[in-house]
Design a protein around this nucleic acid. Structure first.
Length: 251
DNA sequence: AAGAGTTCCAACCGCGTACAA
DNA sequence: GTTGTACGCGGTTGGAACTCT
């Protein structure tokens, strides 16, 4: 699905994400987490609004996203939950591992709705006794929003250090951090020379499951997998908080 | 082959909620 | 209690891909 990229008045890009943007976002989020969606694009070197970054990550780039055909079981689950919850897509998607609310919603509108209508036309009206979302109006159906929220955050939210024009620290307190005091950059040689496993050893050891779980609840998907998918380009330096891109941004 | 119509889905937008100041 | 900020959710849109004529 390709949308013509364009720019809005503020210079922020809109429209289809390029592979380069995807790579930047993925590289940044997997390393530093989503400590602040609003600020993230600046540090990740993306000319996108935070909202757009969040959506792209959650609906497309996030690990373990299941794409492609829906199984019969998944479709039945969607139909069943839609009957009881209405258009609460995030709640429905929560019951379908690897599926996003957007994807579930799209699948409903493109495929299942028609099927459901055909099925129910012979029986009763589907919206009888339902609220504005199409959910049954009964006590206790109001969901706790927080319960359905995907929490992707660092236990140690990165801080912006004014004195050094520095930026949020990596999510772990890695003593061997490759961030240097003077130029605040990651040493590309280190990134280039170490294996993927070594690169994240310290992170995983330091922060344990807290840091990895939100992204890799499926243990079969690892940092190595992620970096294999989104490697740094030849000679590219990943600046931890986007110092190579800060020009033009007012912090 | 080509134009028209339809389908699919990525992405945008607006609103509601949570939370901090 | 009010205001401002950030985030999440659901509705909607736009355009490529696909199908039909």
């Amino acid at each position: 699905m390709v949308r013509t990229p364009c720019c809005d008045k503020t210079g922020l890009r809109k429209g289809t994400w390029t592979p380069e943007e995807d790579r930047k976002l993925t590289a940044y989020v997997t390393r530093y987490g989503c400590w602040n969606w609003r600020q993230l694009p600046k540090f990740a070197g993306l000319a996108r609004c935070g909202k757009s970054c969040r959506l792209r990550w959650l609906n497309y780039l996030r690990p373990n996203i299941k794409r492609g055909n829906y199984s019969k079981e998944e479709e039945e689950t969607i139909i069943r939950l839609h009957e009881s919850l209405g258009n609460r897509w995030s709640a429905i998607a929560a019951e379908l591992p690897g599926r996003t609310d957007n994807e579930v919603k799209n699948h409903w509108h493109t495929t299942l709705k028609k099927r459901f209508k055909q099925k129910s036309s012979s029986t009763s009206t589907p919206n009888d006794g339902k609220d504005k979302n199409g959910a049954p109006e009964k006590e206790g159906t109001k969901l706790n929003n927080n319960a359905n929220r995907l929490v992707i955050s660092s236990p140690n939210p990165p801080l912006i250090l004014e004195s050094s024009m520095s930026s949020p620290q990596p999510a772990s307190s890695d003593q061997n951090s490759s961030i240097t005091a003077d130029n605040n950059t990651v040493e590309s040689s280190r990134l280039d020379s170490v294996s993927d496993d070594n690169l994240f050893e310290a992170y995983e050891a330091d922060s344990g499951s807290f840091w990895t779980e939100p992204f890799f609840s499926d243990s079969s998907y690892t940092w190595s997998d992620m970096w294999a998918e989104f490697p740094l380009l030849d000679g590219e330096i990943l600046y931890p908080f986007g110092f190579n891109y800060l020009e033009g941004f007012n912090l």
